[in-house]
């Protein structure tokens, strides 16, 4: 410590001797530069900013009554299914009804990252199960969506790349949908895996309308003879 306090005096002495006026000017210039560089700048303080409420651009579904004007029952049923199709063909539903073994994700329906495959039970391969990342509910911090039944639809229920008419006929074919019409209605109207589509979390666009409205449309479609578009 004593050495340290001795030193500056010796140095100052040397500077004056070695540099004379020119040297001191250089030192002064460097000093001024440092003043400029190091001078404390004003720091912003917190101030109240009004909360901007962001209204999500939600899409609505037409109520069943909107189709009452269509008199012809077959046409009404088809029109109802087309409304139902707005939900079925939303990325929220399509992403887990892929045409390959790999689901898609996001509004753009890009292939799922990281790579995953349906596996034997639609729940993934070893180590890369759905549950490796997806929990029983949406996870807020990671933005990873979740549901207790998170899994892929069976390959025979692939919707991607299919027309709405084909999807319709597929739904009505118990060999492919593995559901009776009652089960179908239940899946659409009450299954909380399907219900996730209206509570997708992570800034995702929900499916149009609500699950209740959707269920009512499906019920009305079934009641009107479950007609399919071309």
């Amino acid at each position: 410590m004593t050495r340290r306090s001795d030193r500056p005096r010796r140095r100052r002495f040397r500077i004056a001797r070695i540099f004379g006026i020119a040297g001191l000017l250089v030192v002064a210039a460097i000093g001024l530069g440092l003043v400029y560089l190091l001078y404390p700048r004003p720091v912003l303080q917190s101030e109240p900013i009004a909360v901007e409420t962001l209204y999500a651009q939600l899409e609505s579904l037409q109520p069943v009554s909107a189709f009452d004007t269509i008199v012809e029952p077959r046409l009404r049923s088809v029109a109802l299914f087309e409304e139902v199709g707005r939900v079925l063909q939303s990325p929220r539903c399509m992403n887990c009804h892929p045409a390959t073994d790999r689901p898609t994700q996001t509004e753009a329906m890009w292939p799922h990252m990281p790579w995953v495959s349906r596996g034997l039970d639609g729940g993934g391969e070893a180590n890369m199960r759905c549950t490796t990342c997806h929990q029983a509910q949406n996870a807020e911090a990671s933005g990873v969506p979740g549901n207790a039944k998170w899994s892929l639809a069976p390959i025979e229920m692939a919707w991607q790349g299919k027309s709405l008419g084909d999807i319709c006929r597929q739904l009505l074919d118990p060999a492919r949908s593995h559901m009776t019409r009652e089960e179908l209605l239940h899946h659409m109207a009450e299954d909380d895996l399907v219900g996730w589509a209206w509570n997708p979390g992570g800034g995702r666009q929900p499916a149009p309308g609500t699950q209740d409205e959707f269920g009512a449309l499906v019920a009305a479609w079934l009641e009107t003879g479950a007609q399919c578009p071309q």
Binding site: R12, R14, I15, G23, V27, G31, L34, P40
Partner: peptide, 24 residues
């Protein structure tokens, strides 16, 4: 802020001295 000025002054002086000594 007060202490900052102190530090500033000290740094400048020290810096200037060191530059001078540094040439030697």
């Amino acid at each position: 802020l007060t202490r900052r000025r102190l530090i500033l002054g000290g740094t400048l002086l020290g810096g200037a001295l060191l530059v001078g000594y540094g040439v030697a």
